[in-house]
Amino acid sequence: MQTRVLLIQVGTVIAVVVLWEILVIEGFVDPLFLPSPSSIISSFNKIQNIALNSLFETLLKTLIAFLIGVGLGIPIGIVIGGNELLHKIFHPYVFGLYSIPRIVFLPLIVLFLGIGFNSNIFYAVLHTILPVILVVEGGVRNIDRRLIVYALSLGARRIQLYSKVIIPAAMPSILVALKLGIIFSLLGTLIAEMYLSLSGIGFLMQKLSYAFKSAEVFALTGVVASLAMIIVLVLSAISKKVEEKWL
């Protein structure tokens, strides 16, 4: 069964690539519109240097936004999740902000912080922190009440309750929040780069697309997409290992 599944997967990918190549080479599709896979691969060499620099810069920004986003978001989520009053007050706003296109705030951020690194990071943090808070908060609220009641019946103080019961019990949600955090901080960074048009791989991709350099755009898209997929796979593997121990 496993081999059949693998065959279908690999087969589909190969079929798509082959069909694609044929369509372009036979002239059914304008190479400007859809460059051939072969031209995409060869364009890698042309842009290698600048692409790597931009990519590095983007990843750096992503990391910073991620650290700030989860560093603030996880504690906030725990506190809001653990306190009914705080939840009632803040949850609607956090959820509300999450459900709207947050990009609309980007120009406002730029008005305050100017075009540059700060706006980029601020927006990426905003993009990251909201889902992290929501996930962690949800995880805390879903803890089996019995576990908490039991600790309280033993006379546990607030700090003990949080450190010995709430945080360990919410660990699975915290792990999910970390996974989400990386994806969202990358997403936020890219969006900000494309809007601010200054530097980073998001900007590079957009600039190349305006210059009609199709093959290069496709190449970069492939690189960034693959990178994201690798990050997700690695994170999933890690979180599975951790979950086995915890659950």
């Binding site: 019995r146 039991y150 360990p168």
Partner: peptide, 12 residues
């Protein structure tokens, strides 16, 4: 007190 649900802490 002992309840019907043992309510143990799975991480301990």
């Amino acid at each position: 007190v002992v309840f019907q649900d043992p309510a143990l802490y799975n991480w301990r």
